[in-house]
Computed example of a mutant assay.
Amino acid sequence: MISTTRTPGAATGGLPLNGLLALATAAFITILTEALPAGLLPGISAGLGVPESAAGQLVTVYAVGSLVAAIPLTVLTRGLNRRPLLLTALAGFLIANTITALSGSYALTLVARFIAGVSAGLLWALAAGYAARLAPAPLKGRAIAIAMAGTPLALSLGVPGGTFLGSLIGWRACFGLISGLCVVLIVWIMAALPDFSGEAAGERKPLKGVLMLPGVRAVLLVVLGFVVAHNLLYTYIAPFLQALNMAEQADRVLLVFGITSLAGIAVVGALIDHWLRTLTLASILLFAVAAVLLAVAAGMPSLVYGAIALWGLAFGGAATLFQTASAKAAGPAADLAQSMLVTVWNTAIAGGGLIGGLLLEAAGVDAFAPALLLLLACAFGVTLASTHGFPRRPSPR
């Protein structure tokens, strides 16, 4: 695959920060669009005249859009230039958030949220590969880390900030502001990002061929185990904290999680190009230690906060680790591999919620830690066994 313009980072040996920060802002918008309704449910419920349970489906429909669209859209657009596709995804967010801001119809808002989810599926399939192609070979992992920094920023600062802002100016104005940010970002990307060509017809591997590349399946299995474990706990953090008599501290707990997630992505970004395998194993182990601490933390709030900090540190750089591993394993077929990763990630989100709900109903929150440890043990074992998805030796400096 050949760039249609010169790659700034590859040409100079450094990182094209302007372009990478534009991609990070795209990730920020994607996560903010996805998660903000959860913080604005009462207002959305009242504004659309539906129960909060129905308003909550705005998040579900978004996830469904990403899940069903990522692979088909990536397959259909493999031969197209990358920048127009990225701009199309952002235009989808602009349209969806504008409709959400203006619509008085629940049905129309659901359609808008589905469009946003489809746009997210396309954007996530493009982002990591785009970032990697912007950078020289020794810095590809760091470039992906910078591009993905918008994700923890949105979770730790964007969503709480948007929720607070919504209480001041209303939920519709919040989605309107995201639309305005989309316009700014579209102009920024047109100015800052070079275009890249898609795959030539003779270079395109079929979906099954990409899945059979050494290391790709291992990365997807690790993603499945890790993200199911994460969402099992994250989705039901409120009842979990309630069982520890800490329900009123949920906002502070999530703030600690968000801050340490930022630290996690900073550590991963600094070391990933040489220590991908070690960092992945360390992230899984940190999450496992956090699960053990949470299992024995009843009556010890300081231990709970310590465990949450370890969990955030483990999760913060996870997306970057998995996307980098997938991109390196797939090589020229990275975009299609990323679309598989997006699909597995969204499946894991749904699976974590489903498994967590079943465990909560059947055995209560005491069942969470054993389930987390089982899932993480499987992820650790697959990482340890896969020398293609997670190479044994660090890359040469």
Rank of each mutant, 00 (worst) to 15 (best):
P16I: 15
E248L: 08
A63N: 07
A46T: 15
R6A: 13
E361Y: 00
T7R: 12
G19K: 08
Y130N: 12
C174H: 03
A200S: 12
L321A: 08
T347P: 06
L207F: 12
L122H: 12
L17F: 08
S3F: 06
G170N: 09
V118S: 10
L48F: 05
G150E: 08
F28E: 10
A297G: 05
L165Y: 06
I186N: 02
A24S: 13
G19T: 08
S179K: 01
A63M: 09
R277K: 14
L85R: 05
S105H: 11
L294E: 05
L358P: 01
G121C: 01
A327F: 01
L294Q: 08
G312P: 09
R217P: 05
L359E: 10
Q242D: 14
Q323T: 15
T25K: 01
S53C: 02
F390N: 09
R277C: 04
D195Y: 01
G352M: 09
V256L: 13
G19W: 02
A247V: 14
P72R: 10
C378W: 03
V111N: 06
L15K: 07
S53P: 11
A318P: 00
V268M: 04
L221M: 14
G39N: 10
L271C: 10
N97F: 04
G158E: 10
S45R: 11
R172M: 05
L336G: 06
R393F: 01
K208N: 10
L354S: 07
N81L: 11
G331P: 13
L285E: 09
A24I: 04
L303C: 03
P394Q: 04
A329E: 05
A330M: 03
L193F: 01
A295Y: 06
P42A: 09
L155E: 07
I308H: 05
A147H: 12
A70H: 03
P72E: 07
R252G: 12
G357H: 05
V267H: 06
A288D: 06
A107Q: 10
S3R: 13
A112R: 07
C174M: 14
G331V: 14
A266P: 05
S45G: 11
L86C: 06
L17R: 11
L207C: 07
I2D: 12
A330H: 02
A247Q: 04
L276G: 04
G162N: 07
V184H: 01
H274Y: 02
A89V: 15
L293R: 06
F368K: 14
A367I: 10
P206W: 00
L279N: 09
L241W: 00
D335P: 03
N18E: 14
G381I: 07
P37H: 01
A135H: 00
G269V: 15
I355F: 01
A243C: 09
P160M: 08
T151I: 15
H230Q: 15
Q242E: 14
W188F: 10
Y305V: 09
A131F: 03
